[in-house]
């Protein structure tokens, strides 16, 4: 740890999700914080940007058989299978709990068909405390793994357009992308052109672990999504490429963020906000800690505002050192 100066200038940490202001650029990540309430004992949920809820579908889902996870070097693979209460349960139990406490929710939706996504977005109109919608078109733990929407620009665009049309106009719509594609920029562009207000990057990478004793795949679902710090460079590369190509499209960056300096890398690459996922399993208070560490890191580097650091790593080589940004 470096020693802090006596007084650091405070950094303006206000961030924006598709134009909607939030008090912190740090959010939870879908699938890694359930619906938020389990984390309530560990930090102030109102002090982060939002709780990104576990992807909800139209109907309740049991999820897959166990084993559902395996630890991997600096990460894990999971095959949960989107266990959840369905949209009715979300609206009846989970969103009101968050709203009553002043916690903003960024609701992740998933579906098997384009119409499912649109119906879910419509059901969220007027729901209390909802900041916006993250469209999970990239979950690897689906039945037809070769048919993840986000592997196909046209399929992605169709879902995003349908959601944008059905959703509350006040709800920004972010498309969550998979890194398991040859050209993530083409998918990102298709989503932006279809009306996405932002992009969430990245979902897990499809992975596999085999048990050397049983000599069979560990997970009940055979393959699973790889997450954690192991995937951070891949995630950062995706954010970098998309921000370079589409500098005006807001990015919610995620993938292996464990510290404030990890979050800083995503901000510098072009993310206006970040989600903290697998790190929560290791440290349930990680989102609050990472907010503080990021603020400190920005201050130490002379940034007065988070917003000034977004995409800063893309500056021209001859651009000088970061002054105090007004």
């Amino acid at each position: 740890m470096t020693t802090l100066p006596e007084v650091l200038p405070s950094v303006d940490m206000q961030a924006s999700i598709g134009g909607v202001p939030v008090v912190s650029p740090v959010l939870t990540a879908s699938g890694c914080s359930s619906f938020g309430r389990e984390l309530d004992p560990f930090f102030d949920l109102t002090a982060i940007g939002a709780v990104v809820t576990k992807s909800v579908q139209l109907r309740p889902r049991s999820g897959r058989a166990t084993p559902r996870m395996a630890e991997t070097p600096s990460g894990m693979i999971n095959s949960i299978g989107l266990q959840g209460p369905g949209i009715d349960g979300l609206l009846a139990d989970e969103l009101p709990w968050l709203a009553e406490r002043g916690v903003r929710s960024f609701v992740s939706i998933a579906g098997a068909r384009t119409e499912d996504f649109a119906e879910l977005a419509a059901r969220l109109r007027g729901a209390p405390g909802v900041l916006g919608i993250e469209v999970n078109i990239s979950c690897p733990n689906v039945e037809s793994r070769g048919e993840v929407f986000a592997c196909n620009p046209d399929a992605s665009a169709a879902v995003v357009a349908a959601v944008r049309e059905a959703a509350d106009p006040a709800h920004p719509v972010y498309a969550k992308l998979t890194p398991d594609v040859t050209d993530i920029v083409s998918v990102a562009r298709a989503c932006a052109d279809a009306g996405a207000n932002g992009l969430s990057m990245i979902n897990t990478l499809l992975g596999l672990v085999i048990d050397p004793d049983t000599m069979r795949p560990v997970l009940g679902g055979v393959t699973g999504g790889l997450s954690g710090p192991a995937i951070r460079p891949v995630a950062l590369r995706c954010v970098w490429q998309v921000h370079a190509a589409l500098p005006n499209v807001p990015i919610l960056g995620m993938g292996g963020i464990r510290t404030g300096l990890d979050a800083l890398q995503f901000v510098l690459a072009g993310a206006g906000a970040v989600s903290v996922g697998t790190a929560v399993f290791n440290d349930p208070s990680a989102p609050a800690r990472i907010h503080d560490e990021l603020a400190e890191a920005l201050g130490e580097r002379g940034f007065g505002r988070l917003a000034d650091a977004v995409g800063y790593a893309h500056r021209a080589p001859d651009e000088g050192p970061p002054g105090r940004h007004a």
């Binding site: 579908q57 109907r59 309740p60 889902r61 049991s62 999820g63 897959r64 058989a65 166990t66 084993p67 299978g81 266990q83 959840g84 369905g86 098997a112 068909r113 384009t114 689906v142 039945e143 037809s144 048919e147 993840v148 929407f149 196909n152 046209d154 399929a155 009940g220």
Partner: peptide
Amino acid sequence: DVGTLPPDLVGADAMQLAHAVPEE
């Protein structure tokens, strides 16, 4: 039933839905 997906579980029926992504 530990380690399996019993068909009568709440939400087990929803696990069978296939994605309907158009062919190229």
